[in-house]
C-alpha cells in the first residue's frame, strides 16, 4: 500500500482532483498519502488523539473544499502542512482563550493531558521531551516539531510558515537550547 501510494505523484493526484468524475478517488489518494504525516504533526501540537482527530478532519474538509484554489506555486505537501498548521493553531488559540491559563499552568495542563492520554505509551524521556516542548512559545514549538520530528528542510518550513529561512534557523536553535536546559534542570 505504502509503495503504491509513494509511486503516485502529486501531479497524478491533482489531475484526478480536476475532474468531478474522479474527484473522490483523487481525494482519497491524497488523504492516504499524507494523512499520517499531517496527523503526527497535528498530534504533537495539540496533544491527545481526540483533539488531533477533530483538527485533522477539519483540515481535510478544508482541503476538500479548497483544493481548486491550490495554484501549484508551492509543493502540495507544504500547502497541506500550512492548512494543518493553521487549523492546529486556531484550535490551540481557542483552547487558550477557553482556559485563560498562564504559560506555567498551560505546561502543567499539557503534562496532565499527556498522563491521561490513553494512546501515549512513550518512555519517561519522551514524556519529558514533550513537557519541555510544551514550555516553548508556539512558533518555536512549531519550528522544532517540523525540523526535529518531521525532518523538513528550512525551505519547506519557510513555505508553510511564511517566515524567512534565517529566522527559522534562529528559532530552531533557540528551541533546542531551551529544551536542553529544561532537561539539565531536571537532572
Amino acid at each position: 500500500m505504502q509503495t503504491t501510494l509513494a509511486a503516485i505523484s502529486d501531479d497524478q493526484i491533482l489531475a484526478l482532483l480536476e475532474k468531478p468524475r474522479t474527484y473522490e478517488r483523487g481525494f482519497r489518494l491524497l488523504m492516504e498519502k499524507y494523512q499520517e504525516r499531517l496527523y503526527w504533526h497535528i498530534r504533537r501540537l495539540v496533544s491527545g488523539h481526540e483533539d488531533a482527530n477533530d483538527v485533522i478532519q477539519n483540515c481535510f474538509l478544508k482541503v476538500y473544499r479548497n483544493i481548486h484554489n491550490f495554484e501549484r506555486k508551492s509543493k502540495l505537501y507544504t500547502w497541506l502542512y500550512r492548512i494543518a498548521t493553521n487549523e492546529a493553531i486556531t484550535f490551540l488559540k481557542k483552547e487558550q482563550r477557553r482556559s485563560a491559563a498562564s504559560i506555567d499552568e498551560e505546561e502543567s495542563q499539557w503534562a496532565n493531558r499527556l498522563e491521561a492520554d490513553a494512546y501515549f505509551d512513550g518512555e519517561e524521556a519522551q514524556a519529558r521531551l514533550l513537557r519541555a516542548l510544551a514550555s516553548l512559545p508556539d512558533k518555536q514549538r512549531l519550528v522544532f516539531n517540523m525540523r526535529y520530528f518531521e525532518e523538513l528542510s528550512y525551505r519547506d518550513i519557510s513555505e508553510v510558515l511564511n517566515t524567512s529561512e534565517g529566522a527559522l534557523k534562529a528559532s530552531y536553535h533557540h528551541a533546542v537550547k531551551k529544551i536542553e536546559a529544561f532537561f539539565k534542570a531536571e537532572l
Binding site: Y39, W40, R43, H49, D117, Y119, F120, D121, G122, E123, A125, Q126, A127, L129, L130
Partner: peptide
C-alpha cells in the same frame, strides 16, 4: 526514541 504516541 520512536514515536511516543499511538492511534486507535
Amino acid at each position: 526514541g520512536g514515536r511516543p504516541f499511538r492511534v486507535p
